[in-house]
Design a binder for these strands. Structure first.
Lengths: 346, 346
DNA sequence: GACGACGATGTGAACGTGCACATCAGGACG
DNA sequence: CGTCCTGATGTGCACGTTCACATCGTCGTC
């Protein structure tokens, strides 16, 4: 019903050969752009392909060359803006290079879950792997399972067993914090991501660096889960405390939840409290107040990951890519610190 | 360097057979859970697989069975919350059924772009196709290229050549509009999505139905592009007009942009103007004011799409799934209509 | 106790492609 | 004018798996 010409198998290279009156090998050569083919015969073969609606069989090709033309993506939080954007960019870039992409989502961060996802990808015989939004544990499992293909992390991990894009999240976070310091804030709280995430750790480090440089008192960071709901929860908890004037949230969602909680508590942002986010999601510039945040170009990140990985897969020597430094975007959620801001509002 | 045991090819079914002292066919039977295998020999084979670190070669299997165990996803706007969430759910569900997923993103809506993406997927020999966030044109191209595999649309299209989930977006949009009517609004503007999108059209239809039922004057809808930035732009344009008290936006991003523009113009939401969105993205409940919107369960949608498609692929008779009706979530962005609200604010 | 059925296993071919090698014609070169 | 090289093409095999069929022993049945 659905198949137009449901009789048997799809035309093969041999069917094309018969029609074009050449050998199957000649057809193969046309497919692979072999130099020594007479233009005339090439045309004949191409015409035969056209009339037969021939499509090369990737499985057969993979079987004989043992190259699957597929790269794997191991992603967490893949439905949130950042990862989703990078994944889309990876797929686009891969397709451009004639590659396919296979994504495995990490439901939880248990070693079993990670191992399952990796196993799923390995069964597909991927040639390389991109790891998105990685947790520390991911790389341990990856190292342990000795997958035998090159892999690239979207974040600098400090490990030596794989490539990583140089995205200087530490500097990004440091700049965000420094911005608050420059505005006169001396009591800054960090609403961090989950401890075991590479990115969360890098952003926390940047925060700590800035706090240290400015010689501020250290408030114990709050460990969140990246969600706006958690941001709201953390915000309500924070309103009970009166010892800070600014918050640096590890991502925009949490920052938005935070601001919601402050609003509910009758606190003004940035009048009473300044808030900085991270990522610059598309709505960040439209929420009230508009969110000061650290912009990341997720598409560019995805593109570079593919370039780096395919370079590796094809055995090219490692290209030194220049570092990506996220940039601060100052908007309406940050303002000068007021002394005793919190007490003054009551 | 990267490969742990770089000597030659991976172990095959025959290597396992040799080690287990059985024929390769017996190993194959173990792999495919054939009933007549002595438990004893099965164990022996499994042990051999274990020691050799055997992984079945999917390409070889695909070649002989001509089943790729892969489904394709054709997606637009794949980095926004809704599609991204559905895609992730599709991947999870597919993996559970032992299937792989291959996604092709539509950069633009040109027929060539669509045809390219379909061609890319067909080269991968997909067994079925899920179409996400579809434009009308997509189905025309799909019908024209006679792909020969079943496909499922995530939205009701009214076409008869494929299956579609029954998501009653029309009712969802109608309820959103009716909610405004119930609050006393009689001058309602619809900020629609691009005309050629199935979803945009359904939501507009629901809006028109409600307007017709309530016997309201029809304001010409504004055609947007789903983005928050466009919402902001449309909002600034709208503030010049003084002939409406409520806006129904076709998605949350545009609604958030809208509210930003109204805020900038000194208009209060919902005091002066009520706003309703669609989708219930995670930040919708945290923006200021919290956004009244129509909730969609994107994960469930993805899951059902896979169930429906795999049922079709395996030749089961079509299961009638019950309809998904999105539900209205009333929050802070909607309130009773004030007469001459806009004029009163000045 | 002969015979058929069935359970458990083996044998050979096929799937569609690329690779290594063979073949053949024609031109350059001594 | 024979030799060698090179361009253009053909031949057979291998890749790892499943499928169709064959084989063998055992058990139940009349």
């Amino acid at each position: 019903m659905t198949s137009p010409q449901g009789k048997g198998r799809a035309p093969s290279i041999r069917d094309v050969a018969r029609l074009a009156e050449v050998s199957h090998q000649t057809v193969s050569r046309v497919l692979n752009d072999h130099p020594s083919i007479r233009p005339e015969t090439r045309d004949r073969v191409l015409r035969a392909m056209e009339t037969l609606q021939y499509r090369p069989n990737r499985a057969a090709r993979t079987l004989v060359t043992s190259r699957s033309a597929t790269i794997g993506v191991l992603a967490a939080m893949s439905s949130t803006y950042g990862p989703a954007t990078s994944i889309a960019a990876i797929e686009d870039a891969a397709r451009e290079h004639g590659y396919y992409v296979n994504t495995a989502n990490l439901a939880d961060s248990s070693p079993e879950g990670i191992a399952d996802a990796i196993e799923h990808l390995m069964l597909q015989a991927i040639e390389g792997l991109v790891v998105i939004a990685p947790q520390v544990r991911t790389f341990e499992v990856l190292a342990a399972s000795a997958i035998g293909v090159p892999f690239v992390s979207l974040q600098s991990t400090g490990r030596r067993d794989h490539l990583a894009l140089s995205i200087d999240q530490v500097t990004g976070a440091r700049r965000a914090t420094q911005h608050l310091v420059d505005l006169g804030h001396r009591e800054i709280v960090h609403l961090a991501g989950p401890q075991d995430w590479i990115e969360a750790e890098a952003r926390m480090r940047g925060f700590l660096d800035a706090v240290y440089d400015a010689d501020l008192d250290l408030h114990p960071p709050i460990l969140g889960d990246w969600t706006a709901d958690f941001g709201y929860y953390a915000g309500t908890e924070l309103t009970h405390r009166r010892d800070f004037t600014a918050v640096f949230a590890a991502n925009d969602e949490m920052a938005i939840g935070l601001m919601h909680a402050f609003r509910d508590a009758g606190l003004d942002v940035p009048g009473d409290i300044s808030v900085v986010g991270f990522d610059d999601v598309p709505v960040a510039k439209h929420v009230a107040p508009t969110l000061t945040t650290v912009h990341q170009d997720f598409r560019e990140i995805g593109r570079r990951a593919v370039a780096l990985l395919l370079g590796q897969v094809r055995g090219e020597h490692r290209i030194e890519v220049d570092e990506i430094v996220p940039r601060l975007v100052v908007r309406g959620s940050t303002g000068p610190a007021r002394v005793r801001a919190l007490t003054a509002t009551r």
